[in-house]
Design a binder for these strands. Sequence first.
DNA 1: CGAGGAATTGATTTCCATCAATGACGGTGG
DNA 2: CCACCGTCATTGATGGAAATCAATTCCTCG
Lengths: 218, 218
Amino acid sequence: MFGSREKEGPFETQDWQNHFLVSASKQVVASNQTSPEVYVLCSGWAFRFLQLPDGRKQILSFLLPGDLFSARYLFEDRFHFSVKALTAIQVSGMKRSEVLTRVLAQPVTAAPALAKSCSADAEASEKMIAALGLCSAEERIAYLFLHLMRRIADRNVIREHRYAFPLRQQHIAEAVGLTAVHVSRVLGAFRDRGIADLSNGVLEVLNLRELQRLGSLA
Amino acid sequence: MFGSREKEGPFETQDWQNHFLVSASKQVVASNQTSPEVYVLCSGWAFRFLQLPDGRKQILSFLLPGDLFSARYLFEDRFHFSVKALTAIQVSGMKRSEVLTRVLAQPVTAAPALAKSCSADAEASEKMIAALGLCSAEERIAYLFLHLMRRIADRNVIREHRYAFPLRQQHIAEAVGLTAVHVSRVLGAFRDRGIADLSNGVLEVLNLRELQRLGSLA
DNA sequence: CGAGGAATTGATTTCCATCAATGACGGTGG
DNA sequence: CCACCGTCATTGATGGAAATCAATTCCTCG
């Protein structure tokens, strides 16, 4: 595992902590893999996904800086998904046993924080189920944009409705259950209708109201 | 809330515990509702769902006897989904504060159990995302059948590949993102091809291999 | 017996997939 | 510097899976 990760000496600061770099498009963890560490994404974008034996791939969620790969893996050592770097990323791995000891020593403060993280993940998953089960192509893509915009805005200051957005159309397709060709058509329609423009890794929102009307799910 | 639940005297055994009955098709909790209690399904089937303002409805999961409405709601008092009884059911409500106190008093034993429950929920949600994003109508329905069969088999002894299965075709449709009409056609095809027969609330599996080939997702 | 929900079946339409060709870049090496 | 290449995006033509519309049958239950 981590076959192609690039370790850097200066990051090895503690025996229970472990930083490394992964370049864009490289896989970070594989489904079914076990690991004595839990991971946090420190910089860049990544995504979690499932892959079927026949090659079909479903992106489950995108990971942004600060995200745990998944909060629930504090108590489980086998991954049930794979993770791939979207951009070049920095990852921090921490010994599970160490983290667990610290968490269990402070249950009253740690438990709600963990629960909150799990709960947010679960809520996002369930909203995605609704989007996939109920919504049209346009609605799904609008939903994905709004969901990611909110998460980005929670971390960064956004100017002029412009968001750094390193997704290829193929990633959007794999996240919302469409083909890349159809994603291209929908994005073209969004541009033509003055709703949003995703080009060159930047998402520019031209008509937030309309985007919300399509993708709010609320 | 619980506007139409039927409370029964004999069940009021403790001040922090609270049993009641809900008849088929009645809603048990509403999205956005808060509650000082956490709930366990004691008998019958129910389902969790999201509903959009325009009326579209997505079933998130089915609840079987023994299921918590959702493990993560130990730490949160606002539901992010609604629950409806599929059959007549018995529900047990327990004071959240009471349960929480007991859990936090025994973090080393309770935390992994809770985590396991959350993890199972999350894994199921993510597999459903993959099914909706990647699979055909036949594959999705086969997946739903296999998933529920496994959960039923964990609780009951199953004879001759026959499972009590109180779902209407409309429920299947709302769970896997299809219309009831199309579900009818697929179920008809399953019968014609000797794969499975769902009639009168009983699912009979005629060719498990083929059902697994369609719906295993593995 | 009649009423209403559930399932089935047929006809048609719609949305998205598929197949295929082209253009726009950005890097690479001669 | 520019020909070459691979990746990504776009666009058109066609096909297919599931939705929609509509009619009929089958139950169950009052």
